[in-house]
Design a protein around this nucleic acid. Structure first.
Length: 324
DNA sequence: AAAGGGGTCAACCGCCCGACA
DNA sequence: GTGTCGGGCGGTTGACCCCTT
């Protein structure tokens, strides 16, 4: 297995690209097209290695690159795709026109990771952070009852409902991953939506059919995971019975809907389901230490994103403002 | 106003994989 | 089977920017 020579050999230049170098590269590629990266820098009159040229072109100079801040919709797409695809940044980038894998990777590491951590979600596995869940289990018995009483809940940062919610959300993602993996291996789905609620198990309504997967795969330009989720809840025409009443509460979750219409459509299927965003505290109430560098806009974006990510119901009188 | 610290992001490195000759 | 090449990936670096003190 041959290994390309590094950029430090033969006196090749490293570091930031100058405007002149950029122009040389652009001019050459416009004339001759890209490819043959090894010989390109020599032909273009650049003292760079081919790999450096390729990266510069694909990550920065390409004409279809979309610069600027990620939109809320793009945030949602990235999180959804990452929950399914993992760190396959190029695959994620393929579904985000104008964004590069490097850009998405950087954005993930600097923004989204922190956002998920603030939500108590492990950004690697999309699972609840064990430390928080352990806290949840420890606190659930003692705090849950008191949380029903607003006076007993005041001052508490830990709301078991929140942890259950996070568990629900993340279990759905894990289940979806399993299902997709199994589908890829011609194994039937493993999730039975009618399975009785047991112990700590969190009800899951997400189910991915082979048709859904095919649809997703057949439309690489369209981030359709929302549609998959939406189709599941709509077209299948059911909700697990366990979804409808658990301990007297209706529970549900929703995975990143793109618009309110879909949220409302879904919500109608569960009478007491309300947008999670309406239960969130205002961004200014967040005390997370991870938020030091966030601008007001970022905080608002985070709040918006979270509101679309998770939906559940809580009993009247339960003050959830302190739990986020 | 200046210094220090943290966040951001373009760019790089090392390794790997698949296609091809 | 082996070497070459293009490309992808995770991790890291370092310059720059902004905020706080």
């Amino acid at each position: 297995m041959g290994k390309p020579p590094g950029c430090d050999k033969n006196g090749l230049k490293k570091g930031p690209w100058t405007a002149e170098e950029d122009q040389k590269l652009i001019d050459y590629i416009q004339k001759h097209g890209h490819g043959r990266w090894r010989t390109l820098p020599k032909n273009a009159g650049l003292k760079r290695c081919g790999k450096s040229c390729r990266l510069r072109w694909t990550n920065y100079l390409r004409p279809d690159i979309k610069r600027g801040k990620f939109s809320i919709e793009e945030d949602e797409v990235i999180i959804q795709l990452h929950s399914v695809l993992g760190n396959k940044w190029s695959a994620i980038a393929a579904r985000l026109p104008g964004r590069t894998d490097n850009e998405i990777k950087n954005y993930w590491n600097t923004h989204i990771k922190k956002k998920l951590l603030r939500m108590g979600i492990d950004p690697v596995t999309h699972a609840p952070r064990l430390d928080l869940l352990e806290l949840s289990s420890l606190l659930s018995s003692s705090l849950y009852n008191s949380s029903l009483n607003p006076a007993g809940f005041v001052g508490s940062m830990f709301n078991p409902s929140f942890f259950s919610l996070a568990t629900a959300f993340l279990s759905s993602n894990q289940t979806k991953n399993l299902e997709i993996n199994n589908l890829a291996g011609n194994i039937q789905q493993i999730q039975n939506p009618y399975e009785p609620y047991q112990g700590n198990q969190v009800p899951v309504i997400t189910q991915v059919s082979q048709a859904d997967l095919n649809q997703f795969s057949a439309n690489p330009g369209l981030p359709n995971l929302w549609q998959i989720d939406n189709n599941v809840s709509d077209s299948k025409g059911f909700l697990p019975t366990t979804m409808q009443n658990i301990n007297g509460y209706n529970h549900g979750f929703y995975l990143g809907d793109q618009n309110l219409q879909q949220v409302c459509t879904f919500s109608e299927k569960i009478p007491n389901l309300v947008p999670f965003g309406s239960l969130l505290s205002t961004p200014s109430s967040s005390s997370t230490p991870l938020n030091n560098g966030s601008s007001t806009e970022d905080i608002e974006r985070d709040s918006y994103c979270s509101s679309n990510m998770l939906i559940f119901d809580v009993p009247k009188g339960l003050n959830v403002n302190g739990c986020m």
